[in-house]
């Protein structure tokens, strides 16, 4: 069920501003790929193009191709709603729906897609998703309490449970730990380790140790200069990126010699 992604000659724009240029890379199924790079280099933008969330921002658009198992998700007859059901996303800041309880949050993607499901089916999805997100034991007594009452780390795991409840093929994570303490971060990293058995995961992170810990492949993005679009500098197995990068810019960044 996990699928591969091939990005070819992708340019992403915000209005007339080209944020990222000429990105081509491949993401293997059932692996964890990390995007690293300085702020503003376009790694989050590239991530958001993979499930067509980039175009949600007014006047933002892309050119080029993003292929999901060979199928162009920017093809003329592709429905972005279906793309997003197939490719889930977890955001930087935990964002549970404030009007919903914990269990309603988990199945929001299912109850709001218009198809009717039985209570028993939804209950089992709530339990399965929360167990997968390592949150079940902490919240099983208070499933009808508001999701906003959980701690930051729990809220983020709730958002992961919500994302995997719709059983996507791919999970995109945009700095999922940057608002969390080290213990919650560890919980999420363990979770990523488990989830990659079933999902293809792409994670944007500012934390290079995190990239080294969780990912098999690392892509380094950089900003050649002020006002220029961000670039993909290199993509390689994580070990190689951190021990023996081919590009000087990568070497400078990972060794901290770079602003």
């Amino acid at each position: 069920m996990a699928k591969r992604i091939d990005i070819a000659n992708l340019d992403a724009y915000y209005g007339t501003f080209k944020a990222v240029g000429d990105v081509s890379l491949s993401i293997e199924p059932k692996s964890v790929t990390a995007f690293i790079g300085p702020s503003g280099c376009g790694k989050s933008t590239v991530l958001r193009t993979i499930n067509r969330m980039h175009e949600v921002i007014p006047r933002a658009y892309v050119t080029g191709q993003v292929l999901l198992d060979g199928e162009d998700i920017y093809g003329p007859d592709i429905d972005p709603v279906n793309v997003r059901r197939t490719i889930g996303m977890v955001f930087q800041r935990p964002n549970p729906f404030p009007t919903m309880s914990i269990s309603e949050n988990v199945v929001a993607g299912l109850t709001l897609d218009g198809k009717k499901r039985s209570k028993a089916e939804l209950d089992s999805i709530v339990e399965r998703s929360l167990r997968q997100a390592n949150l079940w034991e902490e919240v099983k007594e208070r499933l009808d309490r508001p999701g906003g009452g959980l701690s930051g780390g729990q809220q983020q795991r709730l958002c992961i449970a919500r994302a995997i409840a719709v059983q996507p093929q791919i999970l995109l994570m945009d700095e999922p730990c940057s608002a969390l303490d080290p213990i919650s971060t560890l919980a999420i990293e363990d979770l990523i380790e488990q989830l990659k058995a079933d999902y293809t995961i792409v994670i944007v992170t500012h934390n290079m140790q995190q990239a080294a810990r969780v990912s098999e492949t690392t892509a380094f993005f950089n900003l050649p200069g002020v006002g220029q679009p961000g670039r993909l500098v290199e993509i390689a197995p994580t070990e190689r990126i951190f021990s023996n990068p081919t590009q000087e810019a990568t070497e400078d960044y990972i060794s901290g010699r770079f602003g």
């Binding site: 969330m53 709603v81 996303m89 964002n95 729906f97 009007t99 929001a108 993607g109 709001l112 719709v166």
Partner: peptide, 29 residues
């Protein structure tokens, strides 16, 4: 209503109009 909530909903594959009626409107109710 924070943009993050709309994005969270859209990213779940919830259509625009359901995002508005089920997430945005109740939050602002």
């Amino acid at each position: 209503v924070p943009r993050e909530l709309r994005e969270a909903s859209l990213a779940l594959g919830i259509p625009r109009w359901r995002t508005i009626t089920k997430i945005v409107l109740p939050t602002a109710l």
